[in-house]
Design a binder for these strands. Sequence first.
DNA 1: AGATGCTCTGGAAGCGTTTCCATGGCTCAT
DNA 2: ATGAGCCATGGAAACGCTTCCAGAGCATCT
Lengths: 336, 336
Amino acid sequence: MAYTIKDVAKRAGVGIATVSRVLNESPNVLPETRARVLAVIDELGYRPNHAARQLVTAKTNAIAIILPFLTRPFFIEVLRGIEAVVANSEYQLIIFNVDSPEQRTRYFNTLPFLGRTDGLLIVSLPLAQPEIKRLQAANLPAVMIDTQVANLPSVVVDNVGGAFKAVEHLISQGHQRIGFVSGQLEPDLGFTVNRDRRRGYEAALTAHHLPLQPEYLRPGFDRRDWGHQAALELLALPESPSAIFAANDDLAFGVIDALRERGLKAGEDIAVVGYDDLEMAQLVGLTTIHQPMEQMGRKGAEVLLAALNEGTRRPTLYTLPVNLIERASSSKLSQA
Amino acid sequence: MAYTIKDVAKRAGVGIATVSRVLNESPNVLPETRARVLAVIDELGYRPNHAARQLVTAKTNAIAIILPFLTRPFFIEVLRGIEAVVANSEYQLIIFNVDSPEQRTRYFNTLPFLGRTDGLLIVSLPLAQPEIKRLQAANLPAVMIDTQVANLPSVVVDNVGGAFKAVEHLISQGHQRIGFVSGQLEPDLGFTVNRDRRRGYEAALTAHHLPLQPEYLRPGFDRRDWGHQAALELLALPESPSAIFAANDDLAFGVIDALRERGLKAGEDIAVVGYDDLEMAQLVGLTTIHQPMEQMGRKGAEVLLAALNEGTRRPTLYTLPVNLIERASSSKLSQA
DNA sequence: AGATGCTCTGGAAGCGTTTCCATGGCTCAT
DNA sequence: ATGAGCCATGGAAACGCTTCCAGAGCATCT
């Protein structure tokens, strides 16, 4: 059996309350008493029992991260950012994976983390209002990462600004006719990426006094083959665009495929810019928008820790900037 | 304040011991009593307090996973496998990241997870004997994944067998002169992959009565540029190999680069087989050995859970099979 | 000198469970 | 009928800690 606070107290010739005070860095302990107690603690290799501490303080010293585990590197990067921050705190990190929508519903109905964590970090999962209510009723601070939810602090990425940068880059390369390929603008799950990125696209055109051409807009599906299809449609237009901005890299890959089919090369005949900066983007030489994934994790964790320590729990929205990675697919055209 | 077992007892008109018995599915409770208690639990939305339970049972119901967080998808896949198994148990998963060797040392010296977990899952980190001793002294069951450690159950992948498969595949394609490019055979950290894979390479040659040519062996470094360099050396031999087996995909990419430089194409002029099945391997069309990463996680978690539940703690070695993914880089040669 | 207030300390209560032990009612064999 | 044995149940102890409360020692002020 491991040593308890009583063993330490007896051996140090003090009361258990004093040992506890030393452990909790209470100021009212005589320096020599403190030293003696610390010496005994060290000598015995005593470690306070966690459960007992939790029981009386009603603090778990743990925070949970709930995320969908898609194959995407995105989540690992976010997770890494979170871990880096949490590792330097007194908290430990409990991980919950939510893969299916049913699982998600079950999780937020039963709240299995209740009483096991002091706070929640929810990644990429949009929450419905009743679910938020339940969290707040349980008095469980939560921070959203990569989704925005009213009433809760959220860390998101500037999708509008990113798209703006992408399109502005194309304009600076001399392009005037720029197509936009994206997924659904109003998808079931309430994700707003496609809409936001289109907003950025439009803002950039407007800022540079270029017309918005409805026939250049190709909302469809979040799948590579739609990128392919949409690109073919754009190419078939009487006045086809000289550049294409795809709302994500996967769509962009579809676009590049389609170009190749038509004997065109991205970056030489038509400029292409994507969004996400997947690993493959570098291989293919795709100009794209890189998201600060790790930083999102860090920021989210920091906000949660602040809320836990200082009790600050204002539902602030943190929007992180993104940056353009310039590669071959958007090099300057000879005949822009 | 949340309800306690006393509230439930009072409201159900029973003693707290009976409520506890219902909670813990003790057989000695009258069905109608049980039903009454359950009804009250449901009505109040009562949840047992974790800390109190832990305190008296001395069980944390948590297991920790300790892993280096390299950028490799490998760890995510392993993590996913672990999570899948643990999610279906009563345990929760605590995650500890160990990036640097110093961090590693610190972790295994201070054992910060002590008293916070019932068991440990250690991924890819070779442990020194004193560290193992300390774990066992703390009576903390541990399972190693992707490293083998004496005295502890270990889940590893069959590196010898995988290399055997890779080389046998090349032989079946008609190759007789097969080069082997690898990293250090005796690296500082004690990893044995390179040595094991070379063993498989030799075994396959011997099994098919092919000679072991010392000049075909190119141990060096675990870096892509070494693959490049080694391939050039092999090509410069008077009787250069018609196929190259690289001990990992990254080395194989270096090999392919070198071939291209010499105007040769992998799969047409020289066959190349890698090991790992990185995402890029598919893109490049590299024949390679795929490791069951998620399954390693699953198996490791299962072994640990079994040890926790049944007390079985024999230091068994579990070796998972690997399989060959055939792609263009090893298609049959016209003039083998 | 006595009252006052501060600092340091120890005892004990209490956190919410599980589990040991005792009790009372029953059944069953004698 | 009566004692033995079993089953369902409740009370109380115990888990190891934090913290309230009270007390002892001492300096300071009136």
